[in-house]
Structures are given as C-alpha cells and as structure tokens.
Amino acid sequence: MVNWTGKDLLGLEDLSKEEIELILERADSFKEISLRPIKKVPTLRGKTVVLFFFEPSTRTRTSFELAAKRLSADTVSISANTSSMVKGETLKDTVKNIEAMKVDIIVMRHSASGAPHLLAKTVEASVINAGDGCHEHPTQALLDMFTIKEKKGKISGLKISIIGDIAHSRVARSNIWGLTKLGAEVTVCGPPTLIPQGIEKFPVKVTYDIKEAIKDADVLNILRIQLERQKSNLFPSLREYALNFGIDLEKLKFAKPDVLIMHPGPINRGVEISPEVADGPYSVILEQVTNGIAVRMAVLYLVSQKSK
C-alpha cells in the first residue's frame, strides 16, 4: 500500500491510481464515523483548517467544515470576494497574512484556474483545492468515485458518461483524470461549443448525441449548466439546451436499468435534469452529499500527515 507523500491536493491529474485508491479507502473508514451517534474523532485535534472561499459555495464549504470538525480540527471560514482584492492586496498578500496566523491546512475555492497552485507554492501549510476556475475540483470527483464504487462495487470497466458543459467544468476534468486512472471508460457529451479544444488528446470518447451517451452507460454524471454561457452564444437558449441534453424520463428510456444518476449540485431543475429524474430511483445525488464529508475527512487526514 502506498503512503501519502504530497503536501497538497491540487488536482487528480497529478495523482497516481494508488494515491486515489488510498483516499477512497480512507474515506470508507471515515464514512463509518458519520453513522455513529457521536460523529467525532480526535485525529486532527490542535490543527487549524482555514476555509478560504473566494467564490460563494455553501455546499462545498459546509461539507469541508463538517469534515474538519468531525476530525476535531479548529476551523475558520473566510469568505472573500475578488472585489476586496482590487484595492491593491494581491492573493499572495492575503494568503501570507493568513499563514502568519500559523494555520495547518488551507482549503481554497477560487474563480481563477491555478490560484491554489500559486498558494501552494507560497505557503508551508497544506493546500486543498476546493475548486479552481475551470481547472479541477478534486474532492468532488473523489466523492463521485466513492459513490460509484459504493453502488457498483468497482470503477474499473464501468462506462461513465459526463454530460453538459465539459469545456468550463472543473468537475468534468477531475472526473476524467480520476475515473480513467481507475480504469473506467469515460464518454463526454454536450454541444460542440461546450466541448474543450484538444479533447481528442484526453482519454475520453466524445459524442454530441445524448442517446449515444446514455445507451450503454453505467453512470450518468450530469453537470450543472451555467446560465451565463448562453450570453456568450455557446448555446441559443436554455430551452434548446434542455430539449437536446436535459435528462428526463423520456431520454432515460435508452438507459440501462441499473443506471446511476449523479449531479454535483446545485441543480437547475428542468434544465439539465428533470425533477422526476433528480428525485427518482436512479438518483444518488443526496448520497453524493453524504459521501462528500467522508471523502473530505480522508483528504484532510492525509494531507495533515504531511503538514507540520
């Protein structure tokens, strides 16, 4: 079994198959804690975790906060908007200030791709990427993988379709790296305007045909569609998007009977997913949320092994 050696968790592209498996195994043992009446272990007692969110995200922040608290860490939550940075303080200045407070782990969400990488180079504390721009969102992909493994018993050999705005999705990128490293066959599906350039070099299949993406898939991971993309002419209207790519019961007729429906949330009901599907029997969306805490506990635990 491999040991965790990294100071940070910045993305799944950088991790080996074994490191990803290690996180998932740790998450398995931490999930059990969440089911106890007293959901707390002393693993990170005396450590300070800063939740540093430059983009609003109640969901991911709460998940990390609960994960840290269940490990007995002290947590501080800082929400900054990029506008407060315009006054001349750079990201590095802000972060240096936080580091001067002697924290152990910084969990960071930022709208700029690569912002956590800049941070990781600057500070001694461990940095966990909680989503950077259009780059990666490793803990989301890890919890997706954890959920798939829990439901299907494995990842290797499964056919997984990721549907929606692949070009701008950090969830898609992290899922692509993680799933393919663990041996899944990944298909991405969306209109060509939302498929990134150079996709042919990614280890995935591409289709613009939603039926094709649904047909043999064991898992459909449906991405949230950002309403502002319509303004940049990436698709003509939400209505047309929903017609072509929105997953509803009609389209699900093409799916395997045991297909899993996943969504990283928050959901645009009636756009990328119909309410019947989101709340239906195939949906594991709420289990993803539960598993998110276990996975984040595992990540916090592993990076803390490295941080002083």
Binding site: D132, C134, E136, Q197, I199, K201, F202
Partner: peptide
C-alpha cells in the same frame, strides 16, 4: 494558446 494544454489547465484559449 487554445488547445489541449489550455483545456487541461482550464485557461481560456486564444485560437
């Protein structure tokens, strides 16, 4: 530059 590398990094490309 727009292409595989910009897509990996999640940075907007210039074709």
């Amino acid at each position: 530059n727009e292409g595989y590398i910009s897509s990996i990094l999640g940075l907007k490309g210039i074709p």
